[in-house]
Design a binder for these strands. Structure first.
Lengths: 206, 206
DNA sequence: AAAATTAGTATTGAGTCGAAACTATATTTA
DNA sequence: TAAATATAGTTTCGACTCAATACTAATTTT
């Protein structure tokens, strides 16, 4: 590398300079994004999984029972339903999830992780390097980052008129009942405390 | 949507609960990353460009004259040189860049954006929605975010033994000369002030 | 009862991506 | 200085993503 640079010393050729007017935040996010993607690819490759497949498994491990359908995955990942349908087919064939027909709507199916799917997510997401780097953040730094990213994410989603896919705990429709359970005013059903920590496609921020 | 949820009220079926042990920071980054990618895809689609092609053009608009080769792009995006070679071929065919042989090393080529390439980057990166959302951040928030992301990015790169690809201004080898120019102690060449704001593949943080 | 909407699948073509094999040039070493 | 090694880049292959389009079947609206 050094040697190669010694040669570069001799090089002289014209060079236009681009003004650096681009947002540094964008550059950081773009790089981090690419890095995460490459990391997810590496992790997934051990099981023959693509990055998008890893993301789908991760989503399915976090979503509630109203949000585990192909359409919900489609909205979450902001892709077309055809694309998602194909990828789900691959994941099913590989044994990471299976489909259960909805008992009430015959058009609809529910996606459930198999044991292999759950195992993969719990072991591989988020990958260990990321976790150890996060551990080095001070709690103030961590909170600042979380707040900032939350703001960016939700504002971008708002601008795209997309669902926020937050957890019930932070949803307008979620109501605390006296007996330490919760109630969703949209679906009109009771939710256990654990359930309020899962992602919902109908989430509306308070 | 509402109507559909009314039906869900009737649904009763077993549900296992996954413990939410995953890092919220990771989930935010993963989603932001996917959102940025989708957005880049949309922007690029108008010109027939894929997300990765947009990223390559963006990189080439920011890198210095020692870092505009296929190998540098490969390292920056952390992919294989074969993949990058293919993508560059497409970008060249589409008229967004052209290749210039290196006068000193006959193996090497330099990638230069065409006018169309420069025009695309300056208009499309970062996309306008992102810019307007960033404008709503307080300067303190912005600084916190920048610091936090910078930390995550550089620590992850360090963990992967990857080059940091920072700008000369923040490089160990960069030396300020009295006459408001700079000097790179690695390549042994003078750098103009503008040049010190460009990305270098040999960057080593101070 | 007819029309419109919704959930999901299948097909097609351009492109990504890693792996592997390859060419040509440059550097190291013996 | 000749041989071995390293480096920059290209090509080919096969599995996969992805948007677009067309499609089926079920459900809701009119």
């Amino acid at each position: 590398m050094l040697l190669q640079m010694k040669n570069l010393v001799k090089i002289v050729f014209s060079q236009y300079y681009n003004v650096m007017n681009t947002n540094i935040l964008y550059t950081y996010l773009e790089r981090l994004s690419e890095l995460l993607r490459v990391e997810a690819r590496k992790k997934g490759a051990e099981q023959g999984l693509q990055p998008i497949q890893v993301e789908i498994l991760h989503y399915l491990s976090q979503c509630n029972r109203f949000s585990d359908t192909p359409m919900a995955v489609t909205e979450y990942l902001r892709q077309t339903k055809g694309t998602v349908s194909q990828t789900l087919k691959v994941l099913e064939k590989k044994g990471f999830l299976h489909k259960r027909p909805d008992p009430n709507d015959k058009r609809s199916v529910h996606l459930k992780l198999t044991t292999a799917g759950q195992k993969f997510v719990s072991e591989a997401v988020p990958f260990s390097v990321f976790q150890s780097v996060c551990a080095d953040l001070s709690s103030a730094q961590k909170q600042n980052l979380e707040q900032g990213l939350h703001f960016l994410l939700f504002e971008l989603l708002k601008a795209n008129q997309a669902q926020t896919f937050g957890v019930c705990k932070s949803c307008r429709y979620n109501q605390k009942l006296p007996n330490s359970t919760f109630f969703c005013q949209l679906v009109g059903e009771e939710l256990s405390p654990q359930e309020t920590q899962l992602i919902c496609r109908e989430h509306v921020p308070v």
